[in-house]
Amino acid sequence: MPTLFFNTSTLAYDFQNRYHQHISLEFANCADMQLTAQFELLTGLKINKQISIATRSEQEFFIEYGEISKIPFYIYANHNWNSVTVLWKSKSGRIYKLEDTYIDCDDIEFWFEELDVALIHRQMFPNIKLPFKLKDLSFELVVTRINMDATIQLQLKADQLNDAKRIELKIDDFIAGFNEKSEKKDRIHGVIHNWKTRIEGDKMIYDIDLGSTGPYFFKKLLPELSKMDHFIKVELC
């Protein structure tokens, strides 16, 4: 199965040749496993030959060690090179270094800073709005953009306007249920951090912090909204 680092031995050679820095295979493999899973979760994309991680130029390279350590990379996406920073910390308080060969993958945690999910989607699918397919929705779907801070506008059918608060509660229950199911599986699909709702005319507007879940949330939400059959149009903007 393809991973973000593609080949950790090649990465280690690149570090030595380009930066004169040693990165152990144990460190690289642990980072690769966690970052691959996180990237696929946040973007909804499976790693393929058009997606990988790459080293930056010698002038851009740095390592910062501390309670939170960091190092810069590129995310290669369909012939585009996106700057990103990889950070890590430990539960134990240990400061892991690149060259360490004893790595407890249950102790160390890796994550991305400055991962622009919306940009990567545009690069990978310039003419496609969603990274998954949906069929036979009961409303018109308009995808203007997908951001981690997302806004969803739901235009209610005329005969549903008086039931807006009841419909809002149904959607709130769905989001809470989504989080609960993910929590029970060690946050396998991430969680929604927070959301708020307002009603303007015939529209319900949700402002949602997608948190650690990414576009996967929409893959579950949109069919659920379709089953409710309360809406004329739903716009992700």
Rank of each mutant, 00 (worst) to 15 (best):
M1I: 13
T8M: 03
S9C: 06
T10H: 07
A12T: 08
A12W: 02
Y13S: 13
D14F: 03
N17C: 10
H22M: 11
H22E: 13
S24V: 06
N29V: 02
N29W: 01
C30F: 02
C30Y: 06
A31K: 05
D32Y: 03
Q34M: 08
L35W: 02
L41G: 03
T43G: 08
G44H: 01
G44S: 09
K46V: 09
N48M: 05
K49M: 04
I53C: 09
T55H: 02
R56D: 00
R56Q: 06
R56G: 00
Q59C: 03
F61N: 01
I68E: 09
I71L: 09
H79S: 09
H79Y: 14
N80A: 14
W81D: 12
S83T: 07
V86W: 00
V86K: 00
S90F: 04
K91G: 11
K91N: 12
R94P: 01
Y96L: 04
K97S: 11
L98R: 01
L98A: 01
Y102T: 14
F110W: 08
E114T: 12
L115T: 03
D116T: 06
V117W: 10
A118R: 12
A118L: 09
Q123E: 15
M124C: 07
P126I: 04
N127M: 11
N127Q: 13
K133M: 14
L134V: 10
K135C: 12
S138K: 13
S138G: 05
E140V: 13
V142C: 04
V143K: 06
V143W: 04
D149Y: 15
I152T: 06
I152S: 05
I152H: 05
L154E: 05
Q160R: 14
R166H: 12
L169S: 10
K170A: 07
D173Q: 13
I175E: 05
A176V: 15
N179G: 09
S182W: 12
S182L: 08
E183I: 15
E183W: 13
K185W: 10
K185A: 15
K185H: 14
H189K: 15
H189S: 14
N194H: 12
N194Q: 12
W195E: 14
R198F: 10
G201H: 10
D202I: 09
D202P: 09
I208V: 13
D209T: 06
L210H: 12
T213W: 06
T213H: 07
G214H: 08
G214Y: 04
Y216F: 15
F217N: 06
K219A: 14
S226D: 02
M228E: 02
M228W: 07
I232L: 10
K233G: 00
K233F: 00
K233E: 13
K233M: 10
E235S: 13
E235L: 04
L236G: 01
C237N: 15
